[in-house]
Amino acid sequence: MAPTPYLELRERTKARDRSLRDKRMSLEEAAALIADGEHVALGGCTASRTPFAMIWALVRAGRRDLKVSRSIVSTEGDILYASGVSRHIMTSWFSQGIVWGVSKVMRAHVESGRATLEEWSHMAMGLRYRAGAMGAPFMPMRAMLGSGVLGRVEGAKPMECPFTGEPLLLVPALNPDVALIHVQRCDAYGNAQIDGLSFMDVDIAMAANRVIMTTERIVSNDQIRRAPDQTKIGFFTVDAVVEAPFGCAPHECYGVYEPFFPHMDAYAAATGKDPEKGVAEYLDRFYHEPKDWNGYLERIGVGDMLDAARRGRTIHAD
């Protein structure tokens, strides 16, 4: 994926309504802002602040062939491949989590050639988003050189440093069409405050051409203005705001809930034996059958939700 030509990037930004306005909408309305085939970057990392509510909405909307990028991909990668929402995921690491072993669903899709797993080093992913956030066409770095990883990606170019003569690697900017980011709180305009680990989210928001923000709760603009130093992503980058409580379930949202471990254990077991059947049944039960997001949470169950929330709040205990 080559960098977007600079004037085109600026034109796309100029064309956006960057005003301080109410951007609240439903998950379904937000999903309609994304077209088949677009590059969608996901915020969070592994089982943290995964924008599951929007992914859920994209699966239900029948979106196809999105090119998806993320720092590290967990359960949501399985869901994207199996639903057909994406057949091309660009990341540094892909599996639900180290304790659950290698994703059988990923293996089934990638080893059969039905899907692509494009692998970059973690720092390369970060510097590609950062270049995109900076309006620069690339960033130089000192990793990936000499490895097989470099040999299998397109667009990275080794160069001799013009100042020192050292070998360097240039990695091209990523400017996703859309970023999906979930935060603890955000106002109606899109001023988003993130507690705890921020991962690559600020760079992703700045790099993207559209940002859909889901949030545990929508707070007033007055509350934002009382602590503007806590605002990590500014309203001017945000195009849609959706309130989605437990919007990362079954993953975690820092300080609000931890991962839903029993649910993730059950998912790994269900997809461990027969990955295709296991994930198809999971999609039916949790994605297609529920009437709405509350219905999804009902199926996950109040017991698991309370357990995850109780553990999540322990971050504030000393």
Binding site: I72, T91, S92, W93, F94, S95, V102, S103, M106, R107, V110, E111, L117, E119, W120, S121, H122, M123, A124, R142, A143, M144, L145, G146, S147, V149
Partner: peptide
Amino acid sequence: PKTRLPGTGGGNDIASL
């Protein structure tokens, strides 16, 4: 591949630097 493994994560960066 016989088996597609999860990939580098930060491993390549750590081992490089």
